[in-house]
C-alpha cells in the first residue's frame, strides 16, 4: 500500500511539476527557452502588456468567448427543456445531433469551416469563429444545462401554480431563478471551451481575428517568442486562482461559524 501511495505521489508530481516550470520562465532574462533561467526580470511582462500583437488576441478571445457563451445558452436552454421534459418521436436522434460536435475531431471541423467560411466570406472574422465555437460548445453546455434541468424539482412549479401563478409567471418567478446557476455554469463552460479552443481557431481566425490560443500556437511554432512564458504564467495563474479560491473561501469565510 505504501508503494502504491509513493507511486501515486510520483504521478501527482508528474502532473503538477511541468505546470510550475512556466512561472520562473516568465521572469527569465533569456531570449530563448532556457532552464534554469540565467537571470530574472519583469521585462517580458512589460513587453506583453505593451504589445498589441499579444493584447489584441486576448481581447479577441474574451469577446469571442462572451459572444459564444451568449449564443450557446440561447440555443441550448430551449433545446434542453424539450429534451428533458418532452417525450417525442426522434428524441434519441436529436440527442445524438446535439452531442455530435463533441464526437467529430476538431481538425476535421477546422477543414470544413476553412472552406465553408471562405465561401460565406466570414473567414478570418470574429463572426466566423463565434459561429464555429458555438457549434463546438453546444454539447458541453447541453450536458450541464440538461443535468441541471433533470435535477429540478417539478413540484416547485406545481407549487407556484397552486399558489396562483400562471404558466409564464411560474417560469419567470420560479423555474428560471432556480435554474439560473445551472444556466450560468453551462454558459461558463461554453466560454472556457471557446477561450481554450485552438485547432479551429488556428485555421479560421486569421491575423485579424486571431484568438489567444492561435497567437500562442504561432508564437511557439514560428517565433519562439519568450513572451509566451508570460502568457502561460498568467493563464496558469487564473486557473490556479479559480481552482483554489473555493478552498480559500471555505477556510476564510466559514471558519468563524
Amino acid at each position: 500500500m505504501n508503494l502504491v501511495l509513493a507511486f501515486a505521489l510520483v504521478v501527482a508530481l508528474f502532473v503538477v511539476g511541468p505546470l510550475l516550470i512556466v512561472v520562473p520562465m516568465s521572469f527569465s532574462t533569456a531570449t530563448s527557452f532556457e532552464f534554469p533561467p540565467p537571470g530574472y526580470w519583469l521585462g517580458y511582462y512589460r513587453a506583453f502588456f505593451a504589445d498589441a500583437r499579444w493584447t489584441q488576441p486576448v481581447i479577441n478571445s474574451i469577446g469571442i468567448g462572451l459572444a459564444t457563451m451568449l449564443l450557446t445558452i440561447l440555443l441550448v436552454i430551449p433545446a434542453s427543456f424539450a429534451m428533458v421534459r418532452q417525450r417525442f418521436f426522434g428524441r434519441s436522434a436529436v440527442n445524438l445531433m446535439l452531442m455530435m460536435p463533441m464526437i467529430v475531431p476538431h481538425i476535421v471541423m477546422a477543414l470544413g469551416y476553412y472552406s465553408y467560411f471562405s465561401h460565406l466570406k466570414i473567414i478570418h472574422s470574429p463572426l466566423g469563429v463565434v459561429l464555429a465555437h458555438t457549434c463546438l460548445s453546444v454539447p458541453v453546455s447541453y450536458l450541464i444545462i440538461a443535468a441541471a434541468l433533470k435535477g429540478f424539482d417539478r413540484n416547485l412549479e406545481r407549487a407556484a401554480m397552486n399558489l396562483g401563478a400562471g404558466p409564464l409567471r411560474t417560469f419567470w418567478e420560479v423555474t428560471f431563478p432556480v435554474l439560473r446557476p445551472g444556466f450560468l455554469i453551462g454558459g461558463l463552460f461554453a466560454f472556457i471551451h471557446s477561450f481554450d479552443e485552438a485547432v479551429v481557431a488556428i485555421f479560421i481566425s486569421g491575423q485579424a481575428a486571431s484568438t489567444l490560443p492561435r497567437k500562442m500556437f504561432d508564437s511557439i511554432r514560428i517565433e519562439a517568442d519568450p513572451i509566451i512564458s508570460v502568457v502561460s504564467t498568467l493563464l496558469f495563474g487564473v486557473v490556479l486562482l479559480a481552482v483554489i479560491s473555493p478552498l480559500i473561501w471555505r477556510v476564510v469565510v466559514k471558519r468563524p461559524v
Partner: peptide, 23 residues
C-alpha cells in the same frame, strides 16, 4: 489545475523541459 490549464500552456512547459537548453 492541470485539467483546466490550456493545452498550449502545458505543451509549452514540455517544450522548455525537453528543450536543448532544458533541465
Amino acid at each position: 489545475m492541470s485539467f483546466w490549464t490550456s493545452f498550449l500552456v502545458r505543451t509549452f512547459a514540455w517544450m522548455v523541459i525537453l528543450g536543448n537548453n532544458g533541465p
